[in-house]
Amino acid sequence: MNSLLRDIASLLAVAFASDGVSATAGGAGDNTEAPGTVIDLLALPSRAESVMFAITARSTLAATATLSLTAKIEHSDQSGAGFTDLVPAASFLTLTGGAGGSTERGVAKVGVSLEYAKRYIRVSLKPDLSAGATDTAVIDAIAIFGGSARTPV
């Protein structure tokens, strides 16, 4: 059993969760919710008890301008429709441009027990850039599943 505790990868399953959400201040993608990739919980190697979405953000920001990132976890009985909140939208990350402008990076996480989750889940991301038209952001996410009801082989 000790060897399992030294190999975290053997205890987790991962899935692609977002197809590179891009935003330009005051333009495309800014302050717009982008639903992530739909994940079928029954397609995982074993039924996970929980999920954590690891969300990365990279943003080119003017001095004191910000990127605020809101995320929520949704679930549904159908793969293409009927998604409702499992974790309501909340702010998970704020990046602020340095003096003279800068490229800022950050990581956030949002997770939930899957005890009452429906078959399909996804994370929806909403980047909000405070500047007028030049700042940009790219956001990605992966899903990390754990707490399997059985020990992986």
Results as ranks from 00 to 15, higher is better:
M1R: 13
M1V: 15
N2H: 15
S3L: 15
L4S: 11
L5I: 12
R6I: 11
D7I: 09
I8H: 09
I8R: 13
A9I: 03
A9H: 10
L11G: 13
L12S: 12
V14M: 13
V14R: 13
V14H: 10
A15L: 03
A15H: 00
A17D: 03
S18D: 11
S18H: 11
S18W: 07
D19S: 15
D19Y: 06
V21I: 09
A23T: 03
A23M: 01
A23F: 01
A23L: 06
T24I: 09
A25M: 08
G29L: 04
G29F: 01
G29N: 07
G29H: 05
N31F: 01
P35T: 06
P35I: 05
G36C: 07
G36T: 09
L42V: 04
L42N: 13
P45W: 10
A48E: 04
A48N: 10
S50I: 01
S50Y: 12
V51P: 08
V51F: 10
M52K: 13
M52A: 15
M52P: 02
R58Y: 02
T60L: 09
T60S: 13
T60M: 02
L61E: 10
L61T: 10
A62I: 01
T64W: 02
A65W: 03
A65F: 01
A65V: 02
L67N: 10
L67K: 00
S68Y: 01
S68A: 15
L69Y: 00
L69H: 05
T70D: 14
T70A: 14
A71K: 09
A71R: 05
A71E: 09
K72D: 14
E74D: 10
H75T: 03
H75R: 07
A81D: 12
G82C: 00
G82F: 03
G82P: 05
T84E: 08
T84Y: 00
T84I: 08
D85N: 11
D85I: 04
P88Y: 08
A89R: 09
A89E: 15
A89P: 12
F92P: 08
L93Y: 03
L93C: 04
L93I: 07
L93G: 05
T96Y: 08
G97C: 07
G97E: 10
G98R: 06
G98T: 07
G98W: 05
G98H: 01
A99I: 11
S102H: 06
S102V: 06
T103L: 08
T103P: 00
E104A: 14
R105Q: 09
R105N: 11
A108D: 02
K109W: 02
V110I: 15
G111N: 12
V112G: 07
Y116W: 04
A117V: 00
K118E: 02
K118F: 03
R119E: 05
I121S: 00
I121N: 04
V123H: 04
V123I: 12
L125Y: 03
L125S: 07
K126L: 14
P127T: 10
P127C: 03
P127Q: 00
S130K: 01
A131F: 01
A131V: 00
G132F: 05
A133C: 01
T134V: 13
T134L: 06
D135A: 02
T136Q: 03
V138S: 08
I139G: 03
A143T: 01
F145V: 07
G146V: 08
S148M: 13
R150V: 15
R150P: 00
P152C: 08
